[in-house]
Write a protein that binds this DNA or RNA. Structure first.
Length: 632
DNA sequence: AAAACTCCTCTTTTT
DNA sequence: GAGGAGTTTT
């Protein structure tokens, strides 16, 4: 984003703050947080940390622990709406489950305070608090930002809106861009009311309707518009385009997941060989990450390069999180979640009994676990048999804290070495830690940790020569010439958890809409008759959303009989059965580029198109008739 | 406290 | 079907 903006603007982009709400707030709070009662070395808890803290509290409160997800989500929405635990408790009747929820919420905030830690919502919440309570500080930042622009405004929540209002001050020099049809994070507390109320909060707003679509073909626009039009709660709009109708939207119903994966990868291969598309012009979208597995197998089978975006992120891997927890604990000794995580990994003989003793003591004195541990050691509050182990642990952490490392990588190496973390670890996990370490070169530990918790999938560089695989949730703001959306079945898209909730069902529809509108030229949809759900094979019904698509804009294959018909490109181009006239992997000689290796070949005789990799020159796609290739 | 076993869950997720 | 978390066993 920064690069794009500095390319477009002829000014020093370093003066502009460009980033997410959370990273901007982090930047402000690292400087100013003392004013709202935290220390500047605060840790940032991600969703995993948040979950483990909530589970811990539920256990303590004797509430069925498996509820933690629902509890986390409720608390998240409360925080995003800036409702404090006290507010929430005072609304309740004192008996219902909400009462319990309120107490968990209260305890959760208390635990964060004691750990000197912030969750994502706190980053925004505390910045709002800071500005509310400190007019001078607010003024400083208002002066700093004479104008503010917010993109993807439909995904903002109440707290973020409040922050915007504060920063905008009297000048109200604000520009926001958003589309309620693309709101796919309502369940995370984002509030399209921010769009609807904008004109009220900022009187005199000039509204510009962006109803011209410059991206997609007429057919794609028509079909996707018909899908989204069925949502009840939306601002009606009518998008127009000057683009040609283009190819019809393709839909195909296939037998199994494997068929679908094969169908997608063959279609990609066909289009790649027969037209001017590069692999990075293709994207495959799906509802849930599980769906990548079959797809990856099929792509590999066809030797199509691909890159998976999203999914279980690298930073969420157990071993990576462990090491990061060490770094965090070293930077902020009060980080209880990190301490709980690593106090006995690798195993150092500190078991649950010992830990719960420390927990009890910490609760009694309302201190962090680490501080409690230290004072217990001093006052001989520990059995002699554990004392050495605990003292050892404290010493190790304090050693990490006090050392000044040249880079986060140095710190990680030291941690791994001193704790023996790699001993008895599988090769794959060792590799992950080495990768973590190399990504931490030349960056201070503090900055590294912030980057780990605040960076996003969209920060990743787009793949140079690979097909993109990503979940629909990640597709906002990007576009591809060719898009495949797979798994349009009841239960998959819409996802079954949305079945009994009208609001969530509309969100599923928006999800599909966002995905469809990423396509510039070719859009291919598919569904499957049978899908393996966990370990059972299930009969699948086609998605209800398919019924809302105008068939005159589509090529519709309800029942794919012969395999050859299942390839989308056979509808787009006449099928040519190919007998390769150049064998993949063989060597050929070109008059200008010399010797290369055939990577791909399609068509036969003079019609053949050959893809050859010439060392030092790169990939070339050649028509056999013209290229004058010599087999060697 | 470590090892073995059983159970459970299994969206998406900006940060 | 797999991986993680929790529980029981040694």
């Amino acid at each position: 984003m920064k690069e794009n903006i500095s390319r477009c603007l002829d000014c020093d982009h370093k003066q502009n703050w460009i980033g997410t709400f959370h990273s901007q707030c982090n930047k402000i709070l690292r400087k100013e947080i003392k004013a709202v009662g935290f220390k500047p070395d605060f840790a940032i808890y991600d969703d995993d940390d948040q979950s483990s803290l909530i589970r811990h509290i539920l256990k303590e409160f004797n509430i069925y622990e498996a509820l933690y997800k629902g509890v986390a989500s409720r608390i998240g929405i409360l925080k995003a709406s800036m409702i404090s635990p006290e507010d929430f408790l005072s609304q309740g009747d004192g008996f219902s489950f909400d009462e319990k929820l309120g107490r968990v919420y209260l305890r959760y905030q208390d635990e964060l305070q004691r750990s000197n830690s912030l969750d994502y919502d706190d980053l925004v919440r505390l910045t709002v608090k800071l500005f509310d309570e400190n007019p001078k500080v607010l003024h400083k930042y208002q002066e700093m930002f004479p104008a503010i622009l917010v993109d993807e405004f439909q995904d903002t929540n109440r707290a973020q809106f409040r922050l915007l209002q504060l920063l905008a001050g009297k000048q109200k020099n604000v520009c926001v861009a958003g589309d309620d049809d693309q709101s796919i994070f309502k369940s995370k507390g984002s509030d399209t009311g921010n769009i609807l109320n904008f004109e009220k909060e900022f009187p005199g707003t000039k509204v510009i309707k962006l109803d011209r679509n410059y991206r997609s073909t007429g057919n794609i626009l028509k079909v996707s518009s018909s899908v989204i039009a069925k949502n009840i709660q939306r601002k009606p709009k009518c998008l127009q385009t000057d683009n040609l109708c283009g190819e019809k939207v393709f839909y195909c119903n296939l037998g199994s997941e494997e068929d679908e994966a094969k169908y997608v990868s063959r279609a990609i291969k066909d289009l790649y060989l027969k037209s001017n598309y590069e692999y990075n012009n293709f994207a495959v979208f799906y509802r849930i990450n599980l769906q990548t597995k079959t797809l990856e197998d099929a792509l590999r089978e066809e030797s199509i390069p691909y890159q998976v975006i999203g999914g279980t992120s690298f930073y969420h891997r157990k071993e990576v999180k462990d090491i990061i927890s060490y770094v965090r604990l070293a930077l902020n000794n009060n980080d209880n979640v990190s301490l709980r995580r690593i106090i006995n990994s690798p195993a150092r003989g500190i078991g649950s009994t010992t830990i719960s003793k420390i927990e009890q003591e910490a609760k009694k004195n309302s201190l962090s676990l680490f501080k409690t541990l230290k004072s217990m050691l001093q006052t001989n509050g520990v059995a002699a048999s554990f004392k050495d182990k605990l003292a050892d642990f404290v010493k190790t952490i304090e050693d990490f804290s006090s050392r000044s490392y040249r880079s986060a990588a140095d710190m990680i190496k030291d941690i791994v070495e001193k704790t023996g973390y790699l001993d008895e670890l599988e090769e794959e996990r060792i590799q992950a830690i080495l990768e973590l370490s190399s990504s931490a070169e030349n960056i201070a530990s503090r900055d590294f940790i912030d980057r780990v918790s605040l960076s996003s999938a969209s920060d990743e560089a787009p793949p140079a020569h690979a097909v993109t695989l990503m979940p629909l949730h990640n597709t906002k703001g990007i576009e591809f010439p060719v898009v495949f959306i797979i798994g349009l079945e009841e239960g998959t898209l819409p996802y079954f958890k949305a079945f009994d909730n009208a609001a969530e069902m509309q969100e599923e529809r928006r999800l599909l809409y966002v995905g469809m509108t990423r396509a510039k030229q070719i859009l291919s949809l598919s569904s499957v008759k049978r899908r393996r759900v966990y370990s059972k094979i299930q009969e699948q019904e086609p998605s209800r959303f398919l019924a809302d698509m105008p068939k005159d804009c589509c090529t519709w294959v309800e029942r794919a009989q012969q395999k050859e018909k299942m390839v989308a490109s056979s509808a787009l181009h006449p099928p040519t059965k190919k007998a390769p006239s150049f064998i993949v992997g063989s060597r050929v000689k070109h008059p200008a580029w010399g010797v290369g290796i055939v990577r791909d070949c399609c068509g036969e005789g003079e019609e053949a198109k050959v893809t050859v990799n010439f060392p030092g020159i790169g990939l070339k796609r050649l028509a056999a008739k013209l290229a004058n290739l010599e087999r060697i």
